[in-house]
Design a protein around this nucleic acid. Structure first.
Lengths: 246, 246
DNA sequence: AGACTGTATGCTGTAGGCAGTTGACGAAAA
DNA sequence: TTTTCGTCAACTGCCTACAGCATACAGTCT
């Protein structure tokens, strides 16, 4: 009777690998948050989520803690979990920090550049340009993420990589409602970046990445800042048992 | 019969505030890790910890997840938790990222400087110099942390603050075995930094902070790198049915 | 009428327990 | 002696249940 909804995801490949239920719950909840089904500021009652997903409260609790660690929900001890309410200011800060981390990554990547790494970057860049020329927006966005992730990876700094990944995940919140990419210009900057990395010119690579990410940042911000969901700390229960109005 | 050991910490101020047991467990385990009682690479059996701390496995599990989020332990699904094994390379990366974040914080702090903030920095700096002159090493270290934290805070970038806090906590791992501070010179740099912030010279403030933190970083690294605990993925059990000590 | 207190309900935090799986030890075979 | 397989203890992941607290509603007092 349990695991009704997640059964297909979690319990099916039961033998294949011990994918903890909590991670399926994590994904499910994250999807509900990003999609807007669970709205910012909303109180997340464990029992409700447990029933909704067909699991017990334990995996829910653990998933909520993971989500809290990544900034998706806020945990108020004794009061439960609330969907984090993103703000334009936070988006700005997030993008600023991401720009900072990526800039440093570009610098380090140029410093430790390898032929193999540069080749991977060039391949991705080609695919990206092809996608743009084919008007494949989704593809270009995906390849763009992959390229940036590869630069991060080539930096060789695990701490930097982890932090950047964390920040990038949180940026995803604003990704959906925002326009995607800025076309060919972006990919020409990528080309210049890769050239700088290949030549080992760390400062130049950093400079290019800085301009690149700051450009993207301003693009985001110009499109953001209209709608602003604000819910300070709403009452835990919507209502008690009377229909009432509000 | 439960909560024997943590009773004094957690259950005593029970009414004062609902401090979840998990946070007491978090602190207790962190202390055990930093102090070296739990050694790098060691497998942490939930039942053992539960019995040791006198609580059930649930708060232990949750505390372990929190610790994992901050990089203190590694969680291997299905295999349990292992104390993270720090390396000199990781220390280097950690310090490098921290330098990066603090440099940016100094830049932002200079940009948004306020009289009140500058006053707080100056006060801390005075206290720090006094502590140094009085040969109060511990005091100077504490004030140093506070000063850097204040610069971070004055940056006004919450995301940056959170990330830096996270990184700084992890640096603490290497803090204990490493010598503490470098005396007056450090505090003169602080003075110059505060002046730059007060005048709103963002680039200068960033430059000073960069040199300052890089200096500290090299100091750390020169003192590090001798002892290097390495334990890839040891057997889960020390023995099978021996009485065991811990 | 408004403020305060008592009461009820839902929630969180924690405990305890069960099933499945992992990994090691020991025996048997090559 | 070395390799392979069977057996088994212990651990993780999950579920269920309970105690305590927080909040909202209702009744009472001023």
């Amino acid at each position: 009777m349990s695991r009704s909804d997640l059964a297909g995801k979690a319990a099916a490949p039961k033998i294949a690998r011990p994918v903890p239920l909590r991670e399926s719950v994590f994904d499910a909840l994250l999807e509900l948050i990003i999609s807007g089904h669970l709205r910012p500021g909303q109180h997340l009652a464990e029992s409700e989520l447990a029933e909704m997903l067909g699991v017990s409260r334990q995996p829910i609790r653990e998933a909520l803690q993971l989500l809290s660690g990544e900034g998706w929900v806020d945990l108020h001890p004794g009061h439960g979990a609330f969907v984090h309410a993103p703000t334009a200011e936070e988006a700005d800060q997030l993008l600023g920090v991401r720009a900072l981390l990526e800039t440093e990554a570009a610098r380090l990547a140029a410093r430790n550049h390898t032929d193999e790494g540069v080749a991977r970057l060039r391949a991705l860049c080609s695919r990206g340009l092809a996608a743009v020329d084919a008007d494949d927006i989704d593809g270009a966005v995906a390849i763009n993420s992959e390229l940036h992730a590869t630069v991060m990876e080539l930096s060789g700094n695990t701490v930097l990589i982890d932090l950047a990944a964390q920040v990038s995940r949180r940026v995803r919140w604003y990704h959906t409602p925002v326009a995607r990419q800025r076309g060919r210009a972006s990919w020409e900057e990528h080309t210049a970046l890769i050239d700088a990395i290949a030549r080992g010119e760390a400062d130049l690579a950093a400079e290019i990445m800085k301009n690149h990410t700051e450009h993207t940042r301003h693009l985001y911000l110009s499109q953001l800042g209209e709608e602003e969901p604000v819910q300070p700390l709403p009452s835990r229960r919507r209502k008690r048992r009377a229909p009432a109005s509000l």
